[in-house]
Design a protein around this nucleic acid. Structure first.
Lengths: 158, 158
DNA sequence: CGACATTCGTTCACCTTTCAACTTCTTAGG
DNA sequence: CCTAAGAAGTTGAAAGGTGAACGAATGTCG
């Protein structure tokens, strides 16, 4: 039985594309993070504010928020504690499930969000969106969508 | 003078593409990291091994390695200490500049690298490269290249 | 009902990253 | 030369992240 087949190395083109992709992502993360620093927010903070502000009652269950932001419950718990201390959110008991908690966006959190959003969007434009033609952006989206689906399916597998 | 212009929000398409891009990157990082775990390596470890193994004498100056891997000197210093303890690399004095140090790939580091690489490449294929057509991958590369250049130019600005 | 598994969220111990201070050496300018 | 400015790396404390263990509440199934 053949178990030890030759590794399928990347071609030159594949390797270049892959490395560029990784590099862009690292630099982009760095840059967006840096652009948020003046507002005393991290991308993680911002992401949570976005999810909460887009939710029905400006509130989400811890678990749902953890799933939505792709982080562990533990990490989210620490994160929310920090944001609570900063006055951006507050915890509230859940009546239908007494194990559960809601993270609720405070007025201050909402204001912060509204104040920062234009700058963040400008940052995303400046460093990403405006550097690609709309067609190429569409292609990129189309190419990444199956990957996103694949990776979602992978999550939490062995 | 008009300083407070209306924010240029993202269109629907732009937003979807952007969010997918961010999501893919987070999930991909998570998955690749997870696939390296059985070998007791992080992406950061692996990245350093790659850079060293591709360098002339299997050695690089700390500063150059920090720049190449996009991390701070401090972080790299801690990182190299860990990898040194794991036997993957060792520090060596630089004779031409006595402030400087080389990080040298050990034999064990090289062996580790060669042993792990096929698995990592398979992982990159499985979760990314093989999910895109070669043409789309080429397009993606072409679209990301100007962004990479822009971001490189940004690095270390105010 | 009663026992067992599962889910929710927090906590603890440990590891990694960040930031600023610091040492040592090199380089540029007078 | 000699001094001041800067670069190379390290360090240590504080902040952030991880994973296992935990208590409390809910679900499930004989």
């Amino acid at each position: 039985m053949e178990t030890d087949t030759a590794p399928q190395w990347l071609t030159n083109e594949e390797q270049c594309a892959w490395r560029t992709h990784v590099e862009v992502n690292r630099m982009l993360t760095y840059q967006l993070e840096k652009d948020l620093q003046p507002f005393n927010l991290t991308m993680n903070d911002y992401d949570i504010l976005v999810h909460l502000s887009e939710s029905e009652e400006k509130r989400m269950r811890m678990s749902d928020l953890a799933a939505a932001t792709l982080q562990s419950k533990s990490r989210l718990s620490h994160q929310i504690t920090r944001m609570e201390n900063a006055g951006l959110v507050r915890r509230e008991n859940c009546e239908s499930d007494r194990r559960g908690l809601y993270t609720v966006l405070t007025d201050e959190g909402m204001e912060t969000m509204q104040r920062v959003a234009p700058h963040h969007v400008a940052s995303v434009r400046q460093h990403f969106v405006d550097l690609i033609s709309p067609e190429a952006l569409g292609e990129l989206h189309k190419a990444l969508t199956p990957i996103a689906e694949h990776l979602r399916a992978q999550r939490g597998k062995p």
